[in-house]
């Protein structure tokens, strides 16, 4: 047997050795405490929903609405300032042209 053939055999043997591991992997049993936690998910989720009082939800909604209103007000005011500065510029340049 040549060195190359020996190397090839060694390589194939190593690959077989690695792939054969899959035959020995066992599916582990799920721990009992995990099953209990999973079965408690519906009640935990319901409890979390109940934990947030309606008053807090309305307060948050009102805050968001107020924030949006302030944003709209501020953006409208800036548009007015821009338009007034534009008209000032026009007057100034037309005055220069006349000179």
């Amino acid at each position: 047997m040549t060195t190359k053939e020996t190397d090839m055999n060694e390589e194939q043997h190593w690959i077989d050795d690695i792939t054969s591991v899959s035959e020995r992997i066992k599916s582990p049993q799920m721990p009992a405490h995990l099953l209990e936690r999973i079965q408690a998910i519906p009640s935990t989720i319901r409890m979390k929903v109940d934990l947030v009082p309606k008053r807090t939800i309305w307060l948050v909604a009102a805050s968001i609405a107020a924030l949006i209103a302030v944003n709209i007000y501020v953006s409208n005011s800036s548009v007015t300032v821009e338009s007034s500065s534009d008209s000032f510029g026009e007057t100034y340049f037309s005055h220069l042209n006349q000179l």
Partner: peptide, 16 residues
């Protein structure tokens, strides 16, 4: 940290 892999197979399993 695979509980289904035997200790002697751990390194080979990681490669696989």
């Amino acid at each position: 940290n695979h509980p289904g892999v035997q200790l002697e197979d751990k390194e080979r399993a990681a490669v696989l």
